[in-house]
């Protein structure tokens, strides 16, 4: 499979302005050298806690954030140095599904209008209504009754379906799903996850799926990237993530998830990480995880580990202690 999206050494730093002349004194390093590739037709899951940079990454891929350095290649083309017209064209190939179905839809626009909006933005005004009806049907809504309803008349899960239909309107190649099910109840979450999988099969979509819920990521992703403080700590096939993740942060994350099985949970030895996430404006030296890592040594405090192959070609880990 070829790479649809390639991200090389991506950095996004936000200046923190202080003092009388508002000169930037400090930088919040939201992304600090991220390398990722997304293959055609796969789902790349991105996990990490708040502040790890996963949403900044999503926004950068969408072209909503200006990277400080690095490159984003979409279909082999440089995204960042393209002119406005090219970006306009590329952007229709990359769409986004947002976390909160309650705030990502205009409360005064009918469902059909919301879904038609991207079509109008790209001047595809032919047979808009027919297209919207097809899209509504595709995501499991009723084109006859739901077309003219307002967002408040839908439940959370149905609203997320409208968001999905809207993202699909321009027939994109890549969809960035930023926590698409975290605001939904479990029974409805399953409906939306199934829908996303069906659509992927039917339309050959590629997903970058961002979530903090590891069981959701495990379920939907083909490969998983674990992020911590603006860096990728580990990349691994989703199938072996649970059992073979090597990075101490990945292991801690996995063990922190409460398992919905009373016997298993009480048997498991949990790794409870001490302390809190350091500020991304004042990153620790060496390995960014060393302040909370149970395996940290002197070397971790001074040297930065690079993401390298461990054990098999499908697993890359940034840690000195994983052999």
């Amino acid at each position: 499979m070829s790479d649809l999206l390639e991200i090389n050494d991506l950095r996004v730093h936000f200046p923190v302005k202080k003092g009388l002349f508002q000169r930037p004194k400090q930088y919040v390093k939201a992304l600090n050298g991220v390398d990722l590739n997304v293959r055609q037709g796969e789902t790349l899951g991105i996990v990490g806690e708040s502040g790890c940079g996963k949403s900044t990454l999503a926004r950068s891929i969408m072209g909503l954030e200006e990277p400080t350095s690095g490159e984003i290649l979409f279909n082999g083309k440089d995204y960042m140095n393209a002119d406005a017209k090219d970006i306009h064209h590329m952007r229709r190939d990359v769409q986004m599904i947002f976390q909160d179905p309650y705030t990502s839809l205009n409360p005064r626009m009918k469902a059909g209008e919301s879904i038609a909006a991207p079509l109008k933005a790209y001047k595809e005004t032919d047979r808009v209504e027919k297209r919207v009806r097809e899209l509504l049907e595709l995501v499991g809504l009723d084109p006859d009754t739901d077309y003219h309803k307002l967002p408040h008349e839908f439940s959370g899960g149905q609203r997320q379906r409208i968001g999905i239909a809207r993202a699909l309107a321009l027939e994109p190649k890549l969809i960035i799903c930023d926590e698409p099910v975290s605001a939904l109840d479990v029974s409805v979450q399953a409906q939306v996850l199934n829908l996303l999988q069906d659509l992927q099969k039917k339309l050959g979509l590629t997903y970058v799926f961002i979530a903090h819920d590891l069981s959701v990521i495990n379920h939907i992703a083909d490969r998983v990237a674990v992020m911590y403080l603006g860096k990728v700590m580990e990349k691994v096939d989703a199938g072996s993530f649970q059992s073979q993740a090597l990075h101490p942060y990945s292991r801690a994350l996995l063990s922190a998830v409460p398992v919905p099985d009373p016997s298993e949970e009480r048997r498991l030895d949990r790794i409870v990480l001490n302390g809190e996430l350091p500020s991304p404006a004042d990153l620790p030296s060496g390995c960014v995880f060393h302040t909370r890592c149970p395996l940290a040594t002197e070397r971790c405090r001074t040297e930065v580990p690079v993401l390298e192959e461990k054990h098999n070609p499908n697993q890359k880990v940034a840690c000195f202690h994983t052999g």
Binding site: L193, H219, Q242
Partner: peptide, 11 residues
């Protein structure tokens, strides 16, 4: 309806 680790069954 909850996804569980390991088995990749349909939800």
């Amino acid at each position: 309806s909850i996804p569980t680790a390991g088995a990749k069954r349909r939800l």
